[in-house]
Simulated assay, not measured.
Amino acid sequence: MQLCYNGKLMAGDRPLLTVDNRSFRYGDGCFETMKVYQGQLLLADLHFERLLMSMHILHFHIPPHFTKEYFTGLILELCRVNGVSDLARVRLTVWRAGTGLYDPVDHTPEFIIQCWELPERIFELNETGLTLDIFPDAVKTGDKLSTIKSNNCLPYVLAALYAREHQWSEALLLNQYGRVADTTVANIFAVKNGRLYTPPLSEGCVCGVMRKYLLSRELPFPVHEQPLTVRDLESADELFLTNAIFGIRWVGQFGDTSYGNAAAAILHDLLQESML
């Protein structure tokens, strides 16, 4: 498989980064995980809106050619070369060039684009509900950095390890107030009395692309951004998770509480119709 390094196609097994790389040293950068389907980059506008917002927050000096059209062209060409244009997962990783200690000496962005084939079942709603519980060893702090898909992912790494050790599908991270933030790879929605609820960005969750897409759509259920407690999740009629790769996945059990998937199934079908 080939990858794209700063706009050039290269062999995927070629060494490219040095030990002074700032992403390696400090997690100094951000990334986007995207989906290509039948030669089209899905939700491209939202992905590149978030990418540019993240780079501004991190004080990169963004080159004029870093546009949606530029990156979309590179992504689709890479998928074509690797023979995965029908259905692929794409990761665009950006980091700050140069060396220095914590104080950077260069604010120029560098990037790598990678792609992998996805199975067709990615479009299917999960038959068995996910199991979810709380990761107790880290919190998400609601600040400007919490919305970014950061190259510094230690809370999510440890939460994913914790979930595997406990044989859960996913782990829930709470914020500094003990309220709901997000999970290791997804935003969370609760369904209660025919209404959808999801934490606002101020609660510490990543600014998820699928989350933002759902908030912008006319849905058969009213959607509200509001802080959610653990008790709110336990008393909900349904829970589901969202991200750009899986779309919607429903939660079958959170702690000792079990859930159905009626609303999640409706939204899943509407999502497929609107995007594909």
Rank of each mutant, 00 (worst) to 15 (best):
Y5C: 11
V19D: 11
M34Q: 14
D182K: 01
G247C: 07
W116E: 14
D256L: 02
L154C: 05
E273H: 14
N82K: 04
I112T: 13
V90Q: 08
V230F: 00
T93S: 15
M55I: 04
G204A: 09
M53T: 14
L132W: 00
R121T: 13
C205W: 01
A163R: 01
C205P: 02
I188A: 03
Y37L: 15
N152T: 06
A160E: 09
G129C: 05
G208T: 09
E49L: 09
G252M: 08
R195T: 02
N82Y: 00
C153D: 05
G73V: 09
T131M: 06
P227L: 03
L125F: 13
P64S: 10
G204D: 03
R22L: 10
L233N: 02
C4A: 06
I57S: 08
E127C: 11
Q167G: 03
Y162E: 09
A171L: 04
C205V: 02
P15T: 08
F246E: 06
I148F: 09
A11T: 01
A264E: 06
R96D: 11
A97C: 11
L267R: 09
V251H: 01
F254T: 04
E77I: 02
A262Q: 14
M210N: 05
Y259Q: 04
R217I: 03
D237G: 06
D269C: 12
M1G: 09
R80D: 12
A190C: 12
T257D: 00
L154P: 05
V105P: 05
T128H: 12
P227A: 03
D13A: 14
E225S: 05
E69Y: 07
D103L: 14
S85L: 14
D256C: 02
F221A: 12
G142D: 06
E77T: 12
A159R: 00
H65F: 15
Q226D: 03
V223Y: 02
L87Q: 11
G83Y: 07
S235K: 01
M210Q: 10
M275K: 13
I134F: 02
P63K: 09
L76P: 12
A159I: 00
S169T: 10
E203I: 03
F246M: 11
Y102G: 12
F111C: 11
M10R: 13
K35A: 07
L174H: 04
L161W: 00
I112C: 11
S150D: 14
Y213W: 15
G129N: 05
S216N: 15
F48H: 08
Y102R: 14
V36T: 12
T229P: 01
P63A: 08
S85C: 07
L196K: 05
F246C: 07
I134L: 05
T229R: 00
T147I: 15
D86S: 14
F221V: 10
C79P: 10
L16R: 07
E203T: 03
T93R: 15
F31A: 08
K149M: 10
G129T: 09
S169F: 01
M34T: 07
G255F: 01
R22N: 13
C207G: 14
M10A: 13
L78A: 07
E273M: 13
D45C: 06
Y162C: 10
L241R: 02
P220S: 10
I134P: 04
V81S: 05
L74C: 08
C79V: 05
N261S: 12
Q272A: 11
Q253M: 10
Q2G: 01
L173M: 15
